[in-house]
Amino acid sequence: MDGAHDMGGAAGFGPVRPEPNEPVFHAAWERRALAITLAMAMPGGWNIDMSRFARENRPPADYLGMSYYQVWLAGLERLMQERHLVEADELAAGKALHPARPVAKILTADGVAPMLRRGGPTERAQTRPALFAVGDRVRAKTMHPPTHTRLPRYVRGHVGRIDAIRGMHVFPDSNAHGHGEDPQWLYTVSFSGTELWADAPDPLLEVTVDAFEPYLERA
């Protein structure tokens, strides 16, 4: 979706403000928000692409008006409500009002280290040959799906070069909507700064994105 999350090249946000000696968390609630979000994926059964879509799919002013972990919380609340694990009246009341739904599995203290170590690898078996080879010129498609995608707007329509082939990976555009993993070839595609930003060309700038095969066409 063409949402506020797709920020590459946007103007008006001002300078980057690094924070010296930044703590990992800036408030106690951020610790719990991170941990609850990581823990709930197990009973909730959603995948990372569904999580990302739940966070980004909201009015731009809402997205931009929230802190990062507030966006996480909003995404989590939506994922839980969609599955009726928690209802809106419970969130409003701040207490459980309905019986729990059965869940397959929950994260225990002992299960944390194995869960983190396992992670969520997205590479899958290579079931067909890759359409493009390293060095090929490709154009990022002009596409504006209302659904989840990982092709940022600032490269759409622009011509780049295949720099690396990363194997076949779970396709977020499908996986985010429960349509299966539908693995696709993943490429690192480089674009010159002059190709992307005609108004502010830096002749020594190159930008790469990791693009799934359906995002690309031969140029």
């Binding site: 610790r31 941990a35 823990a39 928690v86 419970e90 701040g94 729990a100 739904r101 929950i106 944390v112």
Partner: peptide
């Protein structure tokens, strides 16, 4: 809410943090 419903174990949250 989530603890009462048995979806999360607060001890697991402590380990994550």
């Amino acid at each position: 809410i989530l603890t009462e419903k048995g979806y999360i174990d607060p001890a697991a949250l402590d380990v994550l943090i």
